[in-house]
Simulated assay, not measured.
Amino acid sequence: MDRGTGAADASRVSFRWDSTRPAASPGGFDAFSREWRARLGDGLPLTAFSPATTDDFRVKGRIVKLRDVVLADFRTASPLRTAPAPNGDEDWVQMFLVRRGAWIIDGSSGSGAHTVSGGQFLLRHGGRLADYETAPHTVAQNIILPGGALKPLLGGRTIKGPADGAEVRLLVAHANMVHSTVADLSPAGVQAVRGTLIELAKAVAMRRFDDVEPLLAPALAQAAKDFADRHLTDPELSPTMLARQLNVSVRTLQRAFAATGEPVTAYIRRRRLEEARLALTAPSGLSISELAAHWQFADSSHFNRAFKKRYGQTPTEYARPAAVLPAD
């Protein structure tokens, strides 16, 4: 188990575990529960799990806690089931986002149960932490937030929708960024990313993005980059397309990228050149003109000029040490 961060700064805690490997499975739940209690303490008590879960606990995950916000990612090989928690003085909002499998929330409460299937999210204020069960091989995220900031917006509603909605993508992009940078966050950084997570959860609740909130610009730029990276070969990829996908104006998107020091179009071109460079050394069998077309350059001459400007060599010169490209 990776102990991560948090020993010196209780405002930020992170750890990972993996009990899916055969050698790690025996006692996997005990190791996980000890780590949870040691790292998260009394601020977030560990939910009681059913004996079937504790006997066969094959789960891989990572958790980050930033003051009173918790980000938990799970990949389950075995099913999970918790026991209903007693009512207390907790005041939590939870978001469940399922990529694959299913997450059944308050499954013991009969008609009050909610099933979140792969490709869906659910956001709600439940006061206490919800009891739940998951199907085996579920991939999901659970975001726990303080109730005070979000309860008025939710007004008792349970919000459910597609996981690829614009506001959800922004929240997920920011959460992933937090996981990768938490070890380097200063106290001011912890406060900033915590505030951004809450603002993005508000955007999910309101189904709109506050485009004048400066805290949200990094999350918007990251979500746009994530989408662009998956669509680099799409001829329609552009600032207009990205803005439409993220439900913001082009101007808002451009302002978010301005904070990164790289315009949207420059980012798209750089990433296409990077991928083309990798392709040049792979045995793809594509000619220079075919590579140029694949990565959406107007023609091989345009591709040659852009490549040489960035890497100091033409594509043919760069590829020559590794492979001989077919003639055009």
Rank of each mutant, 00 (worst) to 15 (best):
H231V: 00
I268G: 04
L46R: 09
A173P: 06
V178Y: 03
G155Y: 00
Q120F: 07
G118R: 10
A38S: 12
G261A: 10
Q120R: 13
L154T: 03
Q313E: 09
S11H: 03
H294F: 13
M1D: 05
G189I: 14
A113Y: 05
A224Q: 01
D68M: 04
P136G: 04
G126M: 01
L237F: 02
W103M: 10
G165C: 08
H294A: 14
E317M: 08
G127I: 04
A201E: 04
R169F: 06
T115W: 09
A10E: 14
I288C: 01
L286S: 10
H294T: 12
S111F: 11
R81S: 13
L278H: 07
E90Y: 05
A224F: 00
Y267F: 07
R305Q: 10
H302V: 15
Q120D: 12
A258L: 11
Q120I: 00
S108R: 04
E274G: 07
Y318L: 14
R272W: 01
R21Y: 00
L237T: 03
P136E: 02
G119D: 06
L150A: 08
T158V: 15
A166I: 00
A85L: 11
L40K: 02
T252Y: 03
V248P: 00
R320V: 13
R271W: 02
T53M: 14
V212F: 00
D328I: 10
L197N: 10
L44R: 12
L129M: 09
A135N: 12
F297H: 11
G189E: 06
R255A: 13
R310F: 10
A221H: 03
